[in-house]
Lab assay of single mutants.
Amino acid sequence: MPGGGPEMDDYMETLKDEEDALWENVECNRHMLSRYINPAKLTPYLRQCKVIDEQDEDEVLNAPMLPSKINRAGRLLDILHTKGQRGYVVFLESLEFYYPELYKLVTGKEPTRRFSTIVVEEGHEGLTHFLMNEVIKLQQQMKAKDLQRCELLARLRQLEDEKKQMTLTRVELLTFQERYYKMKEERDSYNDELVKVKDDNYNLAMRYAQLSEEKNMAVMRSRDLQLEIDQLKHRLNKMEEECKLERNQSLKLKNDIENRPKKEQVLELERENEMLKTKNQELQSIIQAGKRSLPDSDKAILDILEHDRKEALEDRQELVNRIYNLQEEARQAEELRDKYLEEKEDLELKCSTLGKDCEMYKHRMNTVMLQLEEVERERDQAFHSRDEAQTQYSQCLIEKDKYRKQIRELEEKNDEMRIEMVRREACIVNLESKLRRLSKDSNNLDQSLPRNLPVTIISQDFGDASPRTNGQEADDSSTSEESPEDSKYFLPYHPPQRRMNLKGIQLQRAKS
């Protein structure tokens, strides 16, 4: 015994090295194993092979420090690593049964499904019991997946119906949107047309105001020219009257000059006056001389005659003075006559000038009245044309509004008919989907599995289990394997941990 101590140590070291070499393959693929292994699927088989106990299973599945599946799978690998070579062998058998691809990844061999460990530990009855539990578990999982698949199909059909409904609603909204954009385009076109009409109206108003201003300026210029013409006519008439007055005065002077006595007659009258003065002096001298030589009687007679002569001279002087006064009065009367005649001529000139001015103003008033009548006639014609244009424009607008209203009513009726057609199509689609759903539900009910399987069917299934373990590994792997896509769409199922009653199965096998 003492001599065998070193050999035992060498043997233990060799086993430990082999164990480390075995687990080295697992550690190399630890990331892939932790990512894809579900500990809840492996722990029943590991407990059946007595590699882990209930406490280890509870620690792996329910520990609060292991929230994710990767953490739980890593903890399970750590626990199996502590179990040595047996933990490695049982772990590979569980991978061979549940995850053939991972088994091939770790060992590089094809899975054979021999279950040597569980046969050694529990015997064939334990293997049968384990396989029966796994089959029931798989059936329950398949039923749950079928239910989930039916629910998802129903949800899918519902979503398809909602999608069709949303599509129809979208078509309806597109119809309304198209109608909205069309009405918006019509409104924009009408606004552009309105702005264009306003611009045209403004341009016409500006043109009309400009023409009116030009016409008023032309009328004012015409009036100024007419006033200048009238003033020139007035000056012409005044000059004609002055010329006529000057002509009359010149004719009067000419007549006075023609009626003036001649120079010879004046000289002859002056000679006669001198001769008479000479004779008068001679007679006076004779009379003076006679007075001195005459007697007293003759002197008395001469005195009487002288007195008579003096009286006659006085009378004559009075007559001469009277004649002079009369001549002066006649001259003054002639001057007054000439003055009055001049005033008369001036008044006649003024009267004729005023008459011509009156005629001029009368003509001017007639011209202004004619212009006013023409302006009123043009204004009435413009008003009439404007009223006709406004009436025609309003009539066109009324007809346009009428046609637009008819078009809008027809478009609304068309839209309502399209919407009604879309709604009826939606109703038809809904009815078809309901009919299809009812038909599929009836087919699913016919094809669904019963909840409680008979014992004979279970025994028959387990009677055929042994050949399947040898020759149909691919079928078992397809039913027991969970793909990543299934984990996305289906909830994980945790079967209840219970042991099955095998009395009925044993009785059935005894009868057979």
Rank of each mutant, 00 (worst) to 15 (best):
G5E: 12
G5F: 10
G5R: 12
G5V: 13
P6I: 14
P6S: 13
P6L: 14
P6K: 12
E7T: 13
E7N: 12
M8F: 08
M8K: 13
D9S: 10
D9F: 12
D10R: 13
D10S: 11
D10K: 11
Y11E: 12
M12S: 10
E13F: 11
E13K: 13
T14K: 12
T14D: 14
T14M: 10
K16I: 12
K16N: 11
K16D: 10
D17F: 10
D17W: 11
E18Y: 11
E18F: 11
E18R: 13
E19Y: 13
E19Q: 13
E19F: 13
E19V: 14
D20T: 12
D20Y: 11
D20H: 11
A21K: 14
A21G: 13
A21T: 10
L22M: 10
L22G: 07
L22W: 07
W23I: 07
E24K: 09
E27Y: 02
C28V: 10
N29D: 04
R30I: 02
R30A: 00
H31S: 08
M32S: 09
M32W: 04
M32P: 04
M32K: 10
M32H: 09
M32F: 10
L33D: 00
L33E: 00
R35N: 05
R35L: 04
R35S: 04
Y36G: 09
Y36S: 10
Y36R: 08
Y36L: 09
Y36M: 14
I37W: 01
I37E: 01
I37K: 01
I37V: 06
N38A: 07
P39V: 10
A40S: 09
A40I: 03
K41R: 10
K41V: 06
L42S: 01
L42P: 04
T43I: 02
T43Q: 00
T43H: 02
P44V: 01
P44Q: 08
P44A: 05
P44K: 03
Y45Q: 03
Y45W: 06
L46G: 01
L46F: 13
L46K: 01
R47Y: 03
R47E: 02
R47Q: 01
R47S: 02
Q48Y: 02
Q48D: 04
C49D: 05
C49N: 15
K50W: 04
V51I: 13
I52S: 03
D53P: 02
D53E: 02
E54G: 04
Q55M: 12
Q55E: 06
Q55C: 07
Q55T: 05
D56I: 01
D56A: 04
D56M: 00
D56G: 03
D58I: 02
D58A: 00
D58Y: 07
E59A: 00
V60L: 01
L61S: 03
A63C: 14
A63F: 08
P64F: 06
M65A: 08
M65L: 09
L66W: 00
L66F: 04
L66T: 00
S68H: 02
S68N: 04
S68F: 05
K69D: 00
K69H: 00
K69R: 15
I70K: 02
I70P: 01
I70E: 02
I70S: 04
I70C: 09
N71E: 02
R72D: 00
R72C: 00
R72G: 01
R72E: 00
R72P: 00
A73T: 10
A73C: 06
G74S: 06
R75P: 01
R75I: 00
R75H: 05
R75Q: 07
L76G: 02
L76R: 01
L76M: 09
L76P: 04
L77G: 04
L77E: 01
L77M: 10
D78I: 06
D78G: 01
D78Y: 03
D78W: 03
I79M: 06
I79V: 06
H81L: 05
T82F: 06
T82R: 08
T82W: 04
G84R: 04
Q85G: 11
Q85C: 08
R86E: 14
R86P: 08
R86M: 14
R86A: 14
G87N: 03
G87M: 04
G87L: 06
Y88F: 14
V89W: 07
V89R: 06
V90R: 15
V90D: 04
F91V: 05
F91E: 06
L92P: 06
L92R: 05
L92I: 15
L92Q: 02
E93R: 11
S94Q: 02
L95I: 03
L95F: 12
L95G: 03
E96R: 08
F97I: 08
F97Q: 06
Y98S: 05
Y98T: 15
Y98F: 11
E101R: 00
E101L: 00
L102T: 04
Y103L: 00
K104I: 10
K104Y: 08
K104M: 00
G108T: 03
G108W: 05
K109R: 13
K109A: 03
E110N: 15
E110M: 13
P111S: 15
P111W: 04
T112C: 15
T112R: 14
R113Q: 15
R113L: 06
S116P: 15
T117V: 07
I118R: 10
I118P: 15
I118S: 08
I118H: 14
I118W: 15
V119L: 08
E121R: 13
E121V: 06
E121L: 05
E121K: 09
E121N: 08
E122C: 04
E122Q: 04
G123I: 15
G123M: 15
H124L: 10
H124S: 15
H124T: 14
H124V: 12
H124M: 14
H124N: 14
E125Y: 13
E125I: 10
G126Q: 15
G126M: 15
L127Q: 07
L127A: 09
L127N: 08
L127D: 06
L127W: 09
T128D: 13
H129S: 08
H129A: 07
H129T: 07
F130E: 08
F130Q: 06
L131C: 13
L131E: 05
M132K: 04
M132A: 06
N133C: 14
N133G: 08
E134T: 14
E134Q: 07
E134F: 05
V135L: 06
V135H: 12
I136Y: 06
I136F: 07
I136L: 15
I136M: 07
I136D: 07
K137V: 09
K137M: 11
L138K: 09
L138E: 14
Q139F: 08
Q139R: 10
Q140P: 08
Q140M: 13
Q140H: 09
Q141S: 09
Q141T: 10
Q141Y: 15
M142L: 10
M142H: 09
M142A: 11
K143N: 13
K143P: 07
A144S: 12
A144Q: 13
A144W: 07
A144I: 11
K145N: 09
K145L: 11
K145V: 10
K145P: 08
